[in-house]
């Protein structure tokens, strides 16, 4: 149920496109869900931790692009 001034077609724009598949990984000891962008980059989707400190770490904020190597 939505309660918004935006027209529904604007809110649901791109709804028919499937979201990118995600992977779970540990980034500096913080469990995150990320969307892979090729082999060496991924964009953080969400943090999967219960430790409140992990949500304050700037390097795993959702949207951040993390660089690394899949090992």
């Amino acid at each position: 149920m939505l309660y918004t001034v935006l027209p529904l077609e604007e809110v649901l724009e791109g709804f028919e496109l499937d979201p990118q598949p995600t992977v779970q990984l540990s980034w500096g000891g913080i469990p995150v869900e990320a969307e892979p962008l090729g082999s060496f980059q991924a964009r953080v989707v969400r943090v999967l931790s219960t430790d409140p400190r992990h949500y304050l770490e700037p390097h795993v904020q959702p949207g951040t692009i993390i660089h690394g190597q899949i090992v």
């Binding site: 400190r53 700037p58 692009i65």
Partner: peptide, 21 residues
């Protein structure tokens, strides 16, 4: 640009007593 938000500056070294699920 990135869909990300800046977080308040640390340090966040000390353990927080309560966790949040």
């Amino acid at each position: 640009e990135l869909g990300q938000m800046a977080t308040p500056a640390g340090p966040w070294g000390e353990e927080m007593p309560f966790h949040c699920l």
